[in-house]
Amino acid sequence: MRPQLTFRDLTLGYERHPAVHHLTAEVPEGALLAVCGPNGAGKSTLLKGICGALKPIGGRIDRHGVAPQEIAYLPQAAEVDLGFPISVYDLVAMGLWRRIGLFGGVAAADRARIEAALAAVGLTGFERRIVGTLSGGQLQRALFARLMLQDARLILLDEPFSALDATTFADLLGIIRRWHAEGRTVLAVLHDLECVRAVFPLTLLLARRPIAFGPTGSVLQPETLARAYGDGHRWQEAWAAGATDCTDAA
């Protein structure tokens, strides 16, 4: 199977403090991968690195021909300005940016895709609503519709299911399954390990350092989970104040 993402001794961080430390892994094309780990484990940081928002401070990321701008990325807290008078329809249509850019028109086929995406997330009838009037779950649905329109080969989701009701959760999970069936590569940061076991064939378990990577069943074992989550003790979440240069071999 061809790789979609290759991490080579990747270290990502902030002001020289590593948040993802010495990660080496290869994500195959079409993978449906859950990224798990405790708070502060570097899960969001890894997604930011993949989409190019954060430059590695060590090692490298190979995206195998996918430019950072071609990646569909849903951040943990989307920065949508809810005070701006924009309709749900227009917000979703933003997903067409790569195709139509600054000047391109929205063709009839595009409009059909926008309507199909709105229907898929259950927001038919919300087209003219101003985004500021949406509930949190409805906004997340709209953002999923926008992701669908981006038509990306690589999709990154940072805790996409936080604070959603059961119906919305099921709907959005259905969309992720559809992406997987279409052969797209999907990486999702998740905390619900039951959901990960049920849906995601591959899992990367992080606790700043990679703990385990591979088929979900073998990754989410009592022993690895104990190493990641600290076996009842808190892991070393805080940065060491007097940290010195890392001397680990590449």
Partner: peptide, 23 residues
């Protein structure tokens, strides 16, 4: 007229615009 779309998208969701384009 030229910049309208970019200005709107950058107002609504600057990190989205930054993730798909450099405009």
């Amino acid at each position: 007229a030229f910049l309208w779309r970019a200005l709107v998208v950058e107002c609504v969701d600057p990190s989205f615009l930054a993730s798909v384009s450099r405009s």
